[in-house]
């Protein structure tokens, strides 16, 4: 089941570097780097994304729930 989120893409210095999606409500998700749509990872970019939380994935950055983005549009 796909989930929609709106927020800002931010570069994080945790781990060896990670990408965050900070929603308007202030929740931080860690963008699942293994499969990222082209053009998403740009610091400060406001986006609306579609995807799912990966409960089965753990990361070195640990900045929040891991979110696998399937598609996105800039806002």
């Amino acid at each position: 089941m796909s989930q929609q989120l709106q927020g800002t893409v931010k570069k994080s210095s945790m781990g060896m570097g990670a990408w965050a999606l900070v929603t308007e409500g202030g929740q931080t998700y860690e963008i699942y780097k293994k499969s990222v749509p082209d053009g998403l990872l740009s610091d400060g970019q406001a986006v609306r994304v579609s995807g799912k939380v990966r409960d089965d994935v753990m990361t070195a950055a640990m900045i929040g729930p891991v979110f696998q983005v399937e598609s996105f549009e800039t806002v």
């Binding site: 780097k33 089965d56 753990m58 950055a61």
Partner: peptide
């Protein structure tokens, strides 16, 4: 257990 992206599965 973590790939070059820094993520891995619980399994």
């Amino acid at each position: 257990v973590l790939g070059n992206s820094g993520g891995g599965t619980v399994v």
